[in-house]
Computed example of a mutant assay.
Amino acid sequence: MRYFEAAMASPGLAEPRFIEVGYMDDQQFVSFDSARASPRMEPRAAWMERMDREEPGCWERNTRRSEANAQVYRVNLKHLGGYFNQSAAGVHTLQAMFSCEVSPELTFQRGFLQYAYDGRDYIALDTETYTWMAAVPQAVSSKRKMEAERRIAEAYKAYLEKECVLWLKKYLEMGKETLQRADPPSARVTRHTAPHGEVTLRCRAQDFYPADISLTWLRDEEEQLQDMEFIETRPAGDGTFQKWAGVDVTSGQEEKYTCQVQHEGLPEPLTLKWEPESFSTLVIVGVIAVLLLLIAVIAGVVIWQRKNSGGKGGDYVPASGSDSAQGSDVSLPAKA
């Protein structure tokens, strides 16, 4: 479970805008935006809409918590402007990201909390040592202040390792039909030729959930670690994910390469190779092309004959009509 928070100040705003977004794995499930007409913490997943029945008054409580966090962020923006010796008239952002992760057995695995200012890392919590790691010299002042009160780090650590995990388990149960499903990938291998003749094979996987997937290229059963190119796993926009991995090959050696796809939605790994179009397929395509050309020639001859016979080729009968279809220094993270 991850939360992203951000406060943004600019001369055009009466006060900094505060946004908070929560994710379970890679699925957004809650959000808060102080710029809305009636800002409140709101569900962003269908399974979260029944949360008020599970925990009466939860949306009101979390709205108040987010409003309080917004005020803390606004104060911290002013402090940071002083640390960086900046004008109050500029555009500035303060961001936070915090998360807890559990193992397949739902036991705590890791948690983190980190802040960024104006798009650059600022400070992060080391949950093992209860210390703060300053990413830039200006963050040393914040580090000293927060380490002077050990209870701040202890409170964050307790949240990440205990309370965050309890809510994560609850949400997994509430949204299990969505969050705990395993949609297998559909995959294929394509061949691409660059302008100078270089050949690349790409192994593409799509329509899978969750996002964790492995694409491995093998040459004669040996894993290829060089001449590889990957794109990070990306959301497809429909609740599933997509990814591809490419490998540079010598033309004529394509049959030596195989792509292995592993995903929890698959009963066993997929092994794929590039398959050039078969001779029979090419013959069929050629026959169809010849037939279409022949039909076009015959049609042209008929039209030419009608024109040369004075248009006496018979009466034109229109097709029957049909209707057209076109007419119609930071407080505890907010949490649900």
Rank of each mutant, 00 (worst) to 15 (best):
Q260F: 03
A236H: 06
I298C: 12
L13M: 10
S66T: 12
E149K: 11
S331P: 05
E268R: 13
Q180A: 10
Y156Q: 07
R181A: 06
S331M: 12
S141Q: 13
L168D: 08
G310K: 12
P195H: 06
V30F: 05
D118I: 06
T131R: 08
G90M: 13
P269M: 10
L125Q: 00
K78H: 04
R53Y: 06
S214P: 00
S31W: 03
W47M: 05
K176C: 07
W244C: 04
D52G: 09
S322T: 12
G22T: 06
K78G: 04
E147F: 13
P267A: 11
L13C: 03
M1W: 10
R36E: 08
N69M: 12
P185S: 09
M48P: 00
E20P: 00
A236S: 12
M24C: 09
E55T: 01
A299C: 07
H196N: 14
E223G: 01
I298R: 11
F230M: 05
T216Y: 03
Q138G: 02
D248C: 00
M41D: 00
N76T: 14
S278G: 15
Y3C: 04
A182W: 02
G321I: 09
E268S: 14
T258A: 13
Q242D: 03
V283R: 14
R110F: 02
Q242H: 06
A14C: 05
S186Y: 06
S66I: 04
Q71S: 10
Q260P: 04
P104N: 04
M228F: 01
P39T: 03
